[in-house]
Computed example of a mutant assay.
Amino acid sequence: MTREVRFEPGLYRGTAGHYDRFRLPYPDAMITDLVRRAAPSGRGRLLDLACGTGQLTFPLRDRFADVWAVDAEHDMTGLVRAKAVAVGASHIRAVTAGAEELHAEASSCELIVIGNAFHRLDRARVARHAHTWLEPGGHLALCWSNSPWVGDQPWQRVLDALLRSWQDALGAATRVPPDWNRSRQQAPDHQILSRAGFEPVGRHEFTVEHHWTVPELAGHIRSTSFLPPSVLGEHAADFDTTLTAELSGHTPLAEAVSFAYDLFRKPPSKATPE
């Protein structure tokens, strides 16, 4: 049996504002493609687990009569509530809860989405819950995007090295477990979901060219679990100065950002023989 790596609670505390402003949005083409394949009726419920500040909640909200945006961090759900009020989306319900502890009715959801977070959850437990919560024929989408320091370009290698050195200097190197991906290598997501009763539908990838500025990268880094504002603390200005100096010789700070979603389906109910 695969033992999941445990992430400490509260790693994103205090990051909501940076998360909402500096995380790149999922591309419209991906959202459109997901809606086409999942084919929501317009009358059902969307469940966004580990929703952050609603990067999937808001672009998908108009396709559902009821939307649950669920996150363990009060800062995240508080910002979702404020954004829902601002756009008049009264059908969005922000719920502060861990995905593992959420209570929802059986067969109550048409679509469940999890953005950049399934690896942080108790995958087997959440997969079983999700299978119960989905109506027969409903879909689960695991959505992903890559981070700007992951890549082979010179500026990305410089950025990655800089982040590692600051994590070490600030005693934050173990905020994210160093072996965080081990359990996914031993039991990939599709295997966990298959055991829970899901059928794979397919992986769908999208690429968007993005040019970063140094202030955008600084904000994005503050949205992470490993160098949030609470860790940078009084060193934040020094970090920004170092970041600017290290990247000053690398322009443009451009990358082809990879987005993707893996779609799974709960099998439809078998028709009762007449």
Rank of each mutant, 00 (worst) to 15 (best):
M1Y: 07
E8K: 11
P9F: 15
G14N: 09
G17W: 07
P27V: 02
D28I: 07
A29S: 03
M30W: 00
R36Q: 13
R43L: 12
L49W: 02
A50L: 03
P59Q: 10
D62H: 13
D62Q: 12
R63W: 09
A69I: 02
R81P: 03
K83W: 06
A86C: 13
V87M: 11
A89R: 02
S90R: 10
A94W: 05
A97F: 11
G98T: 13
A104K: 00
A104C: 09
S108E: 03
I112A: 03
N116R: 13
A117L: 03
R120F: 13
R123L: 15
W133Q: 03
L134I: 01
G138R: 01
L142Y: 04
C143E: 03
W144L: 05
S147D: 13
G151S: 06
D152C: 07
V158L: 07
L163K: 01
S165F: 02
S165P: 01
A172S: 08
V176D: 01
P177H: 12
P178D: 15
D179Y: 02
D179H: 15
W180R: 13
N181L: 15
N181Y: 12
R182S: 12
R182M: 10
Q185H: 08
P188C: 15
Q191S: 11
L193W: 00
P200C: 10
V201L: 13
V201N: 09
E205G: 09
T207N: 06
V208G: 06
P215K: 14
E216S: 01
L217A: 05
S223I: 11
S223D: 03
T224D: 02
T224Q: 06
L227S: 05
L232N: 08
A236H: 09
A236Q: 15
F239N: 03
T241S: 14
T242R: 13
H250C: 07
S258R: 05
S258E: 11
L263Q: 04
S269I: 00
